[in-house]
Amino acid sequence: MSTPQPKNPLHGFTLQQILELLLEQNGGFTGLAKQVKLNCFTNDPSINSSLKFLRKTPWARTEIEQLFIRQRLYQKTDQA
């Protein structure tokens, strides 16, 4: 059984959901690449290739999760 995590802003979000919300908020891969300097957002970007890279690279995943938290996108989904 999972324990509720009311203070964890990432709780309930998959990496794919986080990436899709960031892409929407920042104007696609070009805008996201300006926020986070990762080659997976500049060189032939796609959701699948980016997810594959982020799942294999903990520091990059942390960068994306922190951007998600800084932009407070988790709050916008609660209000919808």
Results as ranks from 00 to 15, higher is better:
78 D>R: 14
61 R>P: 01
46 S>L: 02
50 S>I: 03
41 F>L: 05
59 W>R: 14
28 G>C: 04
27 G>W: 02
77 T>A: 06
30 T>A: 07
74 Y>E: 09
77 T>F: 04
10 L>D: 02
60 A>R: 02
3 T>V: 15
20 E>R: 14
48 N>W: 04
41 F>P: 00
61 R>W: 03
52 K>Y: 09
15 L>C: 04
14 T>R: 04
19 L>Y: 05
78 D>M: 13
16 Q>H: 12
39 N>V: 09
23 L>S: 02
32 L>D: 00
45 P>H: 05
26 N>V: 03
32 L>C: 03
33 A>H: 08
17 Q>Y: 05
71 Q>G: 06
60 A>K: 03
19 L>K: 08
34 K>T: 10
58 P>Q: 13
37 K>T: 15
59 W>E: 11
52 K>D: 12
63 E>D: 11
35 Q>E: 13
67 L>G: 04
8 N>G: 07
26 N>E: 11
23 L>V: 07
55 R>G: 06
40 C>F: 00
70 R>P: 02
57 T>Y: 01
16 Q>V: 15
33 A>N: 07
11 H>T: 11
31 G>N: 00
11 H>F: 13
66 Q>L: 11
79 Q>G: 04
31 G>E: 00
40 C>R: 06
35 Q>T: 10
51 L>D: 04
36 V>L: 10
65 E>D: 05
53 F>R: 14
69 I>Y: 01
8 N>I: 09
6 P>E: 04
29 F>A: 00
46 S>H: 04
23 L>D: 00
4 P>H: 05
63 E>L: 10
11 H>E: 08
17 Q>E: 14
7 K>F: 11
12 G>Q: 08
14 T>V: 06
71 Q>M: 12
66 Q>E: 12
55 R>T: 11
71 Q>N: 13
53 F>I: 14
49 S>K: 15
37 K>C: 07
64 I>S: 01
50 S>H: 02
35 Q>Y: 00
63 E>Q: 15
41 F>K: 02
51 L>M: 09
27 G>D: 00
71 Q>H: 12
74 Y>N: 11
61 R>I: 04
60 A>N: 02
42 T>P: 00
73 L>C: 07
17 Q>N: 10
20 E>N: 13
67 L>I: 10
30 T>E: 05
26 N>H: 14
73 L>E: 06
79 Q>Y: 12
66 Q>I: 12
24 E>L: 13
58 P>N: 14
48 N>D: 13
11 H>P: 00
70 R>S: 13
45 P>M: 03
33 A>E: 02
11 H>G: 06
38 L>F: 06
39 N>S: 13
39 N>D: 11
47 I>H: 01
64 I>K: 01
52 K>T: 15
71 Q>E: 11
33 A>Q: 05
78 D>K: 15
5 Q>L: 14
10 L>T: 05
38 L>V: 13
51 L>S: 06
63 E>I: 07
70 R>N: 14
80 A>G: 11
3 T>R: 10
27 G>Y: 03
50 S>T: 15
